[in-house]
Design a protein around this nucleic acid. Structure first.
Lengths: 343, 343
DNA sequence: CTGAAAGCGCTAACAC
DNA sequence: GTGTTAGCGCTTTCAG
C-alpha cells in the first residue's frame, strides 16, 4: 500500500525526536541532502527508516509556505469536455506528473472575463505557472500575468503583438498544404469554414487557405465563411447550402468542432462526400471514423505540444524567464484515399 | 482586472500595520467575522479598503497549514480524454467551483496500482476529499482510504461488499429497459457486448439484459460476449460476426467506448442498421450523430451525477461522515425512430 | 557533523 | 473592541 491507512501523519519533528536528532538534520537527510552535509551513513539510514516506520509524509502546505512554491501549475483552456482539449489535458497531465507537478484545469468557455477569473483564482491558489489557451480579448489578461512575472505559456493560440511564450500549430502552412491537397486531388474550387474571431490562429488558417488559392491562380474564387462559435450548429446548414450553390466543390473546416458539426449536417442533408463535396477536417478523433467515408484531416501533434509546453513552463519556473519561446509545431495532413475525387 | 499586476503580494501583516491595527483584527474582518467580534463599522471599512488598496491576497499555503484543509478535492477517473469522463470532469469542475473548491484530476487507465499511486499522490497533495472511479481490484485501495477517515465517494462504479459512498447509474434497471425496448421494436434475439471485468456496474448491466431475456421467455437465447478492454478494437469484428452467425439480431453495447468501436466496425463491414442488426448504445455524444442512421442509446444524467457527488463529498468534508450515501441515478433511454425494425 | 532558532503568513484562544 | 501571542510543519542560516 502506497499510503498507510493506520497511523496519523507523522511530522518531521516526530521523526527527529524518534531518532533523537534535530529537525534540521532530519530535514537534510529526508531531502537527500545528507551527503551534502556529510551526515554519517549510519545516521542517514536511521532517519530514513524511522521516516518509513512512522509513515512520515511531508506536509506540503508547510513546505509550500516555506519555499514559496507549490509544484502545481494552472491550465486554462476552452472546455475540457471538448475532445481536442481533453486529449491535450491528458497529455499535459502525464507530462507534468513526470516532473512531479500537478495541474489545476479550468475552462473558459471562450469567454475572456471568465478566463480572467479562472486565472486569478489559480493565481490565488498559488500555482507556480500558467498554461493558457487564450480567447478573444484576452490580451489584457495575458499582459497582466506577464507583468507579475509569473511564468506563462500560451497554448494553441497566441497574440502576435504580445511578447510571450507560446506553443501553437504552424497554422498557415498546414492549412495551405491542406488546400493544395484538395486542389491536387481533383477539386477545383475549395472553400473554408472558419470561426468568426480575431484570434490569430484562425486568421492564420484562413490566410493559409488564401495563400494556396492565390498561388493556384484562384484568387477570384476565394470563398471564406466565418461563423460565430455560438451559432455553429444553427448556421451550418445554410452555410453549406450557400457554398454549394456558389460552386464550391470542397471545404477545409478550420477546427475540430466545425468539422464535426459540418459532417453531421452533411450526413443529415445527404450531401455526398466526396462526389458532391470534398472535405478536409481538423484533428482526427474516433468521431470521424463513424462518418460514411473516411475523411482527410489535419492532425496536430498533441502529445508533442503538451511536452513542449510543460518543458517551457518548467524552464521558466526553475530558471526564470531567460528567453521567450515561440514555437510552431508542425501539423500533418492525414490523407484518406476515398477523399479524392480523381485518383 | 481581477488581479493586480503591479504590486507584490501584501500580507495580512502589511494590511494590519497599514491601518494601524493588529493582524488578528485584520484577520477577523477580512474573513467576514468582523461583526461577530463586534468590530466597529468604521474599522471594518478601513481594513477592507486597505486590503483592496494593497491588493491583499491571502496566502493559501499559510491558511491551509493553519486550518488543516485545502479546499481542494482529488478526482481519479479512468481517462480524462475519454468523452464520457471528460464530460463528467467538466461538470465536477463547475460544481466544485461553485463551492469554492478546486480539483486535481488524474487518470488511472483502469490500472489499479496506477490508481493507488494517483490516490496517494493526491493525498500527499493535501486534498480534503477524494472522488474515485474505481477499477478492477481497487477494493484494498478503497478500504485503505476509508480507514484513514478521508472523505471518499466512488463514482460510476462501486463495490457491493464495501460500505462506502457511491453515485452510480441504475445499471441493472436501465439495461433491462433497453433490452425490453429492443424486444418491443421488432427484434427477437438481442445480445449484449460488455467488458470482461468483475466490476459490479458491468455485472449489473449484464444482469439487466439477462433479466429482460428471462422475463420475455428467452432465457435459452441469452447471448453475452465479454471483451477485454485492451483488445476492444481487435476483437470487435470477430465478435460481431459471431453474434450475427448465431442469429442475434440486435445488440446492447455496455459502454460508450464499446458503442463507438462497434459502430466503427459495423460501418466498415457494411452491416446494415437496423435491418441486419439493431443497436442500443451507451451514452450519447456527437460521435454517434455521424453514424449512418440515428441510434438509440442509454443516457446517463452526467450533470446530476456530478452535482450529487460534489454534494456528498462536501457534506463529508464539512460535517464528518454521518451516514453513507449510496445513490443510483436513473438513466434514460433515448429512442431513435429509425432504430426500430417494425413500427 | 549536528543543533538551535528564525520565520514563511495565517488563525484563534486568551488577555486586557 | 482590540492586541498579544502561540503555534501549524518545514527549510535553512549560523554556531559550534
Amino acid at each position: 500500500m502506497a499510503f498507510n491507512p493506520k497511523k496519523k501523519h507523522a511530522s518531521l519533528q516526530d521523526v527527529a525526536s524518534y531518532v533523537g536528532v534535530s529537525t534540521s538534520l532530519a530535514s537534510f537527510v529526508l531531502n537527500g541532502k545528507g551527503h551534502l552535509h556529510r551526515v554519517s551513513e549510519e545516521m542517514i539510514d536511521k532517519i530514513n527508516s524511522a521516516a518509513k516506520e512512522l509513515n512520515y509524509q511531508p506536509n506540503i502546505f508547510a513546505k509550500s509556505l516555506r519555499e514559496g512554491k507549490s509544484r502545481v501549475i494552472g491550465v486554462v483552456l476552452s472546455d475540457i469536455s471538448n475532445p481536442f482539449f481533453s486529449s491535450l489535458a491528458r497529455c499535459l497531465e502525464d507530462e507534468a506528473e513526470m516532473k512531479g507537478y500537478s495541474i489545476f484545469f479550468s475552462s473558459s468557455d471562450e469567454n475572456h472575463s471568465r478566463a480572467e477569473n479562472q486565472i486569478s483564482r489559480l493565481l490565488s491558489r498559488g500555482v507556480d505557472g500558467l498554461v493558457f489557451v487564450p480567447c478573444e480579448n484576452s490580451e489584457s489578461t495575458v499582459r497582466a500575468v506577464l507583468s507579475t512575472g509569473k511564468p506563462i505559456v500560451l497554448l494553441d493560440r497566441y497574440f502576435p503583438e504580445i511578447h510571450c511564450n507560446y506553443v501553437s500549430l504552424n497554422n498557415k502552412e498546414v492549412s495551405r498544404s491542406a488546400v493544395l491537397e484538395l486542389l491536387n486531388n481533383g477539386f477545383s474550387h475549395p472553400g473554408i469554414i472558419a470561426y468568426d474571431t480575431s484570434l490569430q490562429h484562425m486568421r492564420d488558417r484562413i490566410a493559409g487557405y488564401e495563400s494556396a488559392m492565390k498561388d493556384s491562380g484562384k484568387e477570384s474564387e476565394i470563398s471564406v465563411i466565418s461563423i460565430k462559435e455560438s451559432s455553429l450548429r444553427s448556421s451550418m446548414p445554410e452555410v453549406l447550402e450557400r457554398f454549394i450553390e456558389s460552386g464550391v466543390d470542397s471545404v477545409l473546416f478550420a477546427t475540430n468542432n466545425i468539422t464535426t458539426v459540418a459532417l453531421m449536417c452533411i450526413k443529415e442533408r445527404g450531401i455526398c462526400v466526396p462526389d458532391k463535396l470534398g472535405v478536409i477536417g481538423f484533428d482526427g478523433g474516433q468521431a470521424f471514423e463513424l462518418f460514411n467515408v473516411p475523411i482527410s484531416y489535419i492532425e496536430q501533434p498533441i502529445a508533442l505540444m503538451a511536452k513542449k509546453v510543460i518543458e517551457i513552463i518548467m524552464d521558466e519556473i526553475n530558471h526564470g524567464s531567460r528567453m521567450i519561446h515561440q514555437i510552431e509545431m508542425q501539423g500533418d495532413i492525414i490523407v484518406s484515399q476515398s477523399s479524392r475525387r480523381i485518383i
